[in-house]
Amino acid sequence: MTHADVIIIGGGIAGISAAAELAEGANVLVLEGEAQIGYHSTGRSAAIFIRNYGNATLRALNAAAAPIFEAPEGISDHSLLSPRGELMVAGEAEMDTLEAYCEGATGLERLTGAEAAELVPIFKPGPIAGAVLERDAQDIDVDRMLQGYARLLKSRGGQVVTGAEVQSITRGHSAWQVTAGGETYTAPVVVNAGGAWADPVAELAGTRPLGIQPYRRSAAIIPAPEGYDVDRWPLFGAITESWYAKPEAGKLMVSPADEDPVDPHDAWPDDMVLAEGLYRFEQAVTHPVTRLEHSWAGLRSFAPDRTPVVGFDPRAEGLFWLAGQGGYGVQTAPALARLTAALITGQTPDLPSETVAALSPTRFDT
Rank of each mutant, 00 (worst) to 15 (best):
L108C: 11
F69C: 00
S41D: 04
A357K: 12
A117N: 01
E134D: 15
C102F: 02
E226P: 01
K251E: 12
A18D: 07
N192A: 12
L336Q: 06
L210M: 13
S79C: 08
N62D: 12
R144G: 14
P314E: 09
S255E: 00
V356P: 08
K124E: 13
E241F: 04
M88P: 00
I222T: 11
G15A: 07
L359V: 12
F302H: 08
H265M: 10
K124F: 00
S76N: 14
S168L: 04
E118H: 05
A64R: 08
L87A: 12
L351T: 07
A187T: 06
D136S: 15
I222M: 00
A137G: 07
T42R: 01
I7D: 05
S218K: 00
L58S: 02
T2Q: 14
A93M: 13
A117Y: 02
P223G: 08
Y39E: 02
D270S: 11
M145V: 00
I221V: 14
L292M: 11
F49I: 05
C102V: 02
Q138A: 15
L204G: 03
D266H: 14
E165D: 02
Q147I: 01
M253S: 03
G211F: 00
R280I: 00
I222V: 15
S174P: 00
M88L: 15
R171K: 15
F364M: 07
A341V: 07
T348E: 13
Q159R: 15
G206R: 07
A56W: 13
R151Q: 11
P127E: 09
A358K: 02
V166H: 10
M145P: 01
I122W: 02
D231C: 10
G250N: 10
E134R: 09
